[in-house]
Design a protein around this nucleic acid. Structure first.
Length: 206
DNA sequence: CTACCGATTGACT
DNA sequence: GTCAATCGGTAGA
């Protein structure tokens, strides 16, 4: 058994809070993936919150469709969608019926590097999971995990970081990347000291 | 059915 | 820094 499988999985109550708080607190947690090929994963360093119907940038702002149905499901489950032919992973927050979710934008690869290198076809560690679609390719996440329970502690899950607290964690925030509306809302949260964060320096400077 | 568009990435100047 | 590939989801005829 790998060290990763013994980490404490985040409970459902973690996701049953204000989405911005959930987003901030997800920075520094572990995202883990296990397949027959082995375990891989790392430390979450960048996320974005999308706030249900009151947020024009949220996929569910105009109601439920086939694509976004998972956002209306229970908290702690995954919402996986495709953009430009690539997959992206979210963690659903708030009670069922309130479609808020946190987009996982980047992780610092820590375990199963070889596996991620194979899937991403790159030798550059920094490029393995810097960006939401790169992350999904590195972890072999696709449509089949839409609706998956991230608190199950197997296949795809989020857990506490055993090294948390060893060093001070500075979480910075900025406008969200790649959207035109609601740029005033600072709903992107990232580890200010991590080099595995996506986005430009201007966005990082806030 | 068709037309439009995007919570991206990688290649390129 | 700029730009276009690429295709499923969505809205509308």
């Amino acid at each position: 058994m790998s060290i990763a499988t013994r980490l404490a999985t985040l409970p459902r109550e973690f996701y049953l809070r204000d989405p911005a708080l959930v987003a901030r607190d997800l920075v520094g947690k572990r995202l883990l993936r296990e397949t027959s090929a082995g375990i891989c994963g790392g430390r979450i360093v960048e996320v974005e919150a999308y706030l249900s119907r009151r947020d024009p940038a949220c996929h569910a702002s105009r109601g439920m469709t086939n694509r976004n149905a998972a956002m209306f499901g229970p908290p702690g489950h995954a919402y996986v969608y495709m953009i430009h032919s690539r997959w992206c992973l979210n963690a659903v927050t708030e009670p069922a019926g309130v479609p808020s979710a946190i987009l996982i934008r980047a992780i610092e690869p820590l375990e199963g590097l070889e596996l991620m290198h194979q899937r991403r076809r790159t030798d550059i560690v920094r490029d393995l999971a810097r960006g939401p679609a790169r992350l999904c390719e590195a972890l072999a996440i696709d449509r089949t995990y839409n609706g998956w329970d991230l608190t199950a502690g197997r296949e795809l899950w989020i857990a506490n970081d055993p090294g948390a607290g060893a060093r001070p964690l500075r979480v910075a925030r900025s406008g969200r990347i790649g959207i035109s509306s609601a740029q005033r809302r600072l709903l992107r949260f990232f580890d200010a000291d991590s080099r595995f964060v996506s986005g430009s320096r201007t966005l990082r400077a806030r």
